[in-house]
Design a protein around this nucleic acid. Sequence first.
DNA 1: CAATTTGTATCTACACATTTT
DNA 2: GAAAATGTGTAGATACAAATT
Lengths: 464, 464
Amino acid sequence: MPVNSFDSYPMTWKPDKASLTPPYYKALAEDLEAKIKAGRLAPGAKLPPQRELADYLDLNYTTITRVYELCKQKGLIYGTMGKGTFVAPHSAEDVTITAPNLAAPLIELGMVNGFSEYSKPVERATHAVVEKGYLRRLYEYSYPAGHPHQLAAAVRWMEQLGVHTDREHTAIFSGAQNALTAALLSLFSPGDKIAVDPYTYSNLIELGKLLHIFLIPVAGDGAGMLPEELDKTCTQNHINGIYLMPACTNPTAITIPLSRRMELAKVIQQNRLILIEDDISSWMDAAAGTVPPSMFDLLGGQSVYICGMSKSLCPGLRIAYMAFGAAFKKAILHGLFNINIKTSSLDAEIITELILNGDAYKIAVHKQQLAEKSCAVFARYFPEVRAAAHTGYFKWVPLPTQSPADQVEGELMQNGVRTYHSMRFSVRGKQEQDFLRIALCSAGNNRNLEKGLSILQSYLQRFS
Amino acid sequence: MPVNSFDSYPMTWKPDKASLTPPYYKALAEDLEAKIKAGRLAPGAKLPPQRELADYLDLNYTTITRVYELCKQKGLIYGTMGKGTFVAPHSAEDVTITAPNLAAPLIELGMVNGFSEYSKPVERATHAVVEKGYLRRLYEYSYPAGHPHQLAAAVRWMEQLGVHTDREHTAIFSGAQNALTAALLSLFSPGDKIAVDPYTYSNLIELGKLLHIFLIPVAGDGAGMLPEELDKTCTQNHINGIYLMPACTNPTAITIPLSRRMELAKVIQQNRLILIEDDISSWMDAAAGTVPPSMFDLLGGQSVYICGMSKSLCPGLRIAYMAFGAAFKKAILHGLFNINIKTSSLDAEIITELILNGDAYKIAVHKQQLAEKSCAVFARYFPEVRAAAHTGYFKWVPLPTQSPADQVEGELMQNGVRTYHSMRFSVRGKQEQDFLRIALCSAGNNRNLEKGLSILQSYLQRFS
DNA sequence: CAATTTGTATCTACACATTTT
DNA sequence: GAAAATGTGTAGATACAAATT
């Protein structure tokens, strides 16, 4: 007996042929899009099989294929061989995580702000840069990828994070999201497919929609994506690339151990995938003393490594470093130029100053300690949740029951805390277990954090 | 007798069927792409008609259609009904105009640098911003589209340029190219078509390739694009948008007069096009006292206006303002967020300071005067060239004979000046007349400029 | 101005791959 | 493990539209 059989159900989508004016494939695609956007076809709903619908509408069934294909390209639906076609999870709404409305007096456990209240060294560095008297040079129209000494600082910083590159294969972008956009635009085309974790960075989900690049979820375990699964997906799907956050996967807080990194690297090489390695947090491990080799180093050239500086140092300065394989140099610089012309030299210089005078490292150590303390606080409230997990900016808390995202987030908001439900991060809709991502670095201070966690604790206990 | 008949010529592309392994459409597309990229099929070359090639290869001719379609999507070729299919002008090379190599001791008449040597007020403003003591607020993670007071300054600045908007419909980007990228990504999809001038901003040509958006050239006269031609193109081609630089079209230096703006606005409205109005220079007119109404104002909401501040104030600070119609707000902010998260608050604040303390206006006046002087110098050397033309940063100089771009640029470079040939700006390959774009704001000083222009003058005289 | 050339749009036919039963 | 269900990929047939001759 099928667990979730729709076979006997009426067709979820039953377009009225009489009201359709040819061209049919276009009219049908528009009808489907309208119904999905209006919420009359909910995410996850199974669409009628192509042949069945063709029969019902008395059309050749490849015409229906075309309808589904069009809607797939828009990211509205997706199909799986043998299973059927389904409405995509984030087809109607926008899961972008953006700066929240400041008016609401909420305890922030949703957005990951990175202890941004700690900004004094950055302010000092700003003064230092401005007073050094080479502003004029910075304000010239040159060095699109970054001034040589800025690139040298970037190379040095990345070296501490287990990424070995040189100035010729490094570029400076306006933040990690900007670097990610450039990488995706430069190295992939609309319609390309990229393997990702089933739960991934929600802004990547939106970026995929914007750039018409498909994200294909690949199953994983507690150590990250499973190499066999990746290999299987590749042989089936013609995958062009893969996006990973080995240091600390957002939102699941999983760190990929060295052995798994090596296995994954092998599969990536065999299938000639382009790896985008997004690193938001290995600076924290570096501050604590241990960094495993990056996937970038393991792959030797077949990847692009992105290292955002905003979360580690200062959210208002939009700087990210990128290291890329030699084969990608031309494409990446072309992309950088086409979407930015160049990155702000001033922001880049301030970060450079922080690296060169050693404050960047001190900030990293300080924030690492703050994170450690926050994690300790968290462990007091939720001793059962991944006690052994990595010290990080956020935790991944299982929900006792499956509950709609808006309901959970809304109820918690009414109790005074903002949190993010796992649904926001899900590439392919509902999964067996729901979670909350709990940011530990955004409450502003420890008292607020404790208060927020206690509210959360009592909210979750009500379920049991 | 046809002027340029290829009918009797052998087929320019004669794939060897024996060496093709099915799927044919893919194999053929790859073969064509390889030949074009290798330069064995030159830009402008006419490909065999679909039916003829199908006959020759003994395939159904819609299979050939598919081959051509694939290559069209990659921007390698383009087709015109009744005429045939041709290799696209910039299929093999990259026409991006990027910061030149500093090593070569050239007089710069190529890149438009905007008198960047004049940067003192900007340096002063930087100090002022840093010393005001609200760096901390700037460094927070908030206001993705810009802080309210920054937006207020932006609104005020644009008002002087004939653009009337409010803070709710304004956003700050990391430079004009970045704003353009966001606009194209937010409002269009891969495969969409945008009407442009036959000669247009060369970075737009590359951006179109990167985003898989087609640029369709529309003929114009000395007053800019012709409304009838635009209307005709729209009924034929299903055009989604239009890109114009009414204040001063790059590279032709054409300013669209009010009457033409109104005619164009009408056609744009009738065809429901989205207008992207790129304004790099109306601040110069504002400084001289006269600004016609912007297309943005004339269209009332159906457009996006981009106003880059880098060329007018400081190339190193990457700031552009965008005003958008209410209908586009959601999409634009979503795009801004997805490609940047937010713009550097520091850069934005420095520009804001310059606007609020009045220095921005003073810089504009000063640079306008510099431009006027440069134009006067230019008129001495080239009295016959558009003497009546607009005071601007560059001139459009006709070449006496049609000559290959690399040859002309190369010979001038050997004589010590960098210039850009019209071919870099041409959307559809060769046109009846070749030009050089001559930047008057990048030589560093007037003596250099005079020297450069005199070299250019004697070079051009050799042709006659 | 009609016939021809040439590209575009839509729908059809069929072979293949994977998953479920 | 064979059969059925279901999506994917490739190629063909036909009507239409614009430009040239």
